[in-house]
């Protein structure tokens, strides 16, 4: 293969606190509540923001995914519910429903591109943007956190499949497309 001495590794990141928040993303109260829980502002369309204690990902026009430390997911939901009391919203701890992987190495972008119909060219999917798409046969979301550093989220029920798929793709080596 083209990259004989360098490899891309696929690692299960284990427990990660994840909270789904649905509501009006332009609402001041919601923006304030998100800042209180994560210390971050609500990102724009397809945006991903990471801070010291967490991260916020734009999932759809009315949905955010908040990444918090695993032991903080419960209190994050409670904080959001308290702040948004009386207004239309949904905050759920989905930590146990999802699995998160680290895909890291020089051609990590290609490892994902081989499994997905998404356009992974650096111009189309730059750092700071999340892409929800398909990995092989399952739904997934991934984003870049630096040169050759990617994070992938899938449903936990298909985590085994996703890991095997990514490991196989990494083992097959670089294509040299990007």
């Amino acid at each position: 293969m083209a990259e004989a001495t360098t490899t891309v590794t696929v690692r299960d990141l284990g427990a990660q606190g994840m909270v789904t928040l649905r509501g009006d993303l332009a609402d001041e109260t919601l923006i304030k509540a998100v800042r209180k829980v994560t210390g971050l502002t609500v990102p724009g369309q397809r945006g991903f923001r990471r801070g010291k204690s967490g991260a916020v990902a734009w999932m759809s026009p009315d949905e955010l995914l908040l990444l918090v430390p695993e032991d903080k997911a419960g209190s994050a939901v409670a904080d959001l519910d308290r702040a948004l009391d009386g207004q239309h919203h949904l905050a759920v701890d989905v930590s146990d429903a999802r699995a998160m992987f680290a895909v890291e190495g020089p051609f990590a972008r290609e490892v994902l591109a081989k499994c997905s119909p998404a356009d992974l060219h650096p111009d189309s999917l730059p750092e700071g943007e999340i892409r929800r798409t398909r990995l092989g046969q399952v739904a997934a979301a991934f984003w870049c956190e630096g040169d050759g550093i990617w994070r992938v989220i899938v449903f936990r029920s298909v985590a085994g499949y996703a890991q095997a798929l990514l490991e196989r793709s990494a083992r097959d080596g670089a294509v040299g497309a990007f």
Binding site: Q45, R46, P61, P117, A118, D119, R132, T133
Partner: peptide, 11 residues
């Protein structure tokens, strides 16, 4: 039109 992605048919 909701997320701005040019999605391929299988998505």
């Amino acid at each position: 039109p909701n997320c701005g992605i040019a999605a391929e048919e299988t998505e």
